[in-house]
């Protein structure tokens, strides 16, 4: 059956927990290529270099009434009094749901940027950017 995916199908999981009130996520994958073209050749040639994965997500700054605020938890990866250790990675799953099937991209990443704001006439939200460390841990898209 044909299927068009929209935001209704999207989920974001951090550490295996589906996040509350996510308004968007995005992921960019890039491959660095190293040129191997030499004199006398007529076409450029390359070999694969290093892969890179980064992305961003926005979460409403929302308290579910039980004290759970996923945006605040994400912000605390950077907004904290102590320094960031190399163990401060997060396990992310960017998911599109199709019935009982999950299309996931899983990665381990550092939260690299957070933006947290309050504006007149707008809902407060947290924008986070992340950069993967190591290879993707799962791809089931």
């Amino acid at each position: 059956m044909a299927k068009v995916y929209t935001g209704r199908d999207g989920r974001l999981l951090i550490g295996g927990t589906e996040q509350l009130k996510v308004t968007n996520w995005s992921l960019t994958g890039a491959l660095e290529v190293l040129e191997t073209t030499t004199l006398g050749e007529y076409q450029r040639s390359y070999v694969p270099g290093v892969q890179e994965f980064s992305g961003s997500a926005s979460l409403l700054y929302y308290n579910n009434g039980s004290g759970r605020n996923d945006a605040a938890t994400a912000l605390k990866n950077i907004l904290k009094t102590g320094s960031v250790a190399d163990t401060d990675t997060v396990s992310l799953q960017l998911r599109l749901v199709e019935g009982n099937t999950n299309h996931d991209i899983s990665l381990t990443a550092y939260i690299t940027d957070v933006t947290y704001s309050a504006s007149v006439g707008e809902v407060s939200s947290a924008q986070i950017s992340f950069r993967a460390t190591g290879a993707l841990t799962g791809v089931t898209i």
Partner: peptide, 20 residues
Amino acid sequence: REVVDITTLSDEHRQQYSSL
């Protein structure tokens, strides 16, 4: 009355929040 769209991923209906 302005409303702010607070629809999130996985929602099937738009959700609005009262604003100014």
